[in-house]
């Protein structure tokens, strides 16, 4: 297939598959009609990071229906985000995900690379639940 070995690995053995019961935030993106749907679940914790108490991604899981690239990007974003502070995680872009995977075929960059959006939705959902205004 036209994917590199890192993509194939995350596709064949995706990390953090599943749902989190009582998740602090859930992000759902994509559309079955287009063939790609991602659900991202996050659990938020607090810990001291660089001397400051910060919110961080304590746990993250995903469920994805989609092609190899969709599954691989989902797996990769959970790997990137886990343990990181929310403010860092929010900065993760689609390109970061693709780069971490060693690149994606150009045609897959748009439709199957929804993982960053899903995670951002999950954070939004978490803040909304806590009554924090999203910008």
């Amino acid at each position: 297939m036209e994917y590199n070995k890192i993509v194939i690995k995350h596709f064949s053995h995706p990390k953090n598959v599943g749902e989190i019961k009582n998740a602090d935030g859930i992000g759902k993106v994509g559309n079955p009609v287009c063939g790609d749907v991602m659900h991202v679940y996050i659990k938020i914790g607090k810990k001291k990071m660089k001397g400051k108490e910060k919110e961080f991604v304590k746990d993250i899981k995903f469920k994805t229906m989609g092609c190899a690239a969709a599954i691989a990007t989902s797996s990769m974003i959970t790997a990137i985000a886990k343990g990181k502070s929310l403010e860092d995680v929010e900065k993760i872009t689609r390109n970061d995900v693709a780069e971490s995977l060693g690149g994606l075929p150009p045609i897959k960059m748009h439709c199957s690379n929804l993982a960053a959006d899903a995670l951002r939705e999950a954070i939004k959902n978490y803040r909304k639940k806590r009554g924090v205004k999203n910008d």
Partner: peptide
């Protein structure tokens, strides 16, 4: 509930070559 290119991709990992009519597999 699943997507064809992913099925073909997993089959390919088992060295089985098939094809799909999913959008992801088409140009």
């Amino acid at each position: 509930g699943i997507e064809g290119e992913a099925i073909v991709g997993y089959l390919n990992e088992h060295r089985i070559c098939c094809s799909t009519g999913s959008a992801c597999s088409s140009k």
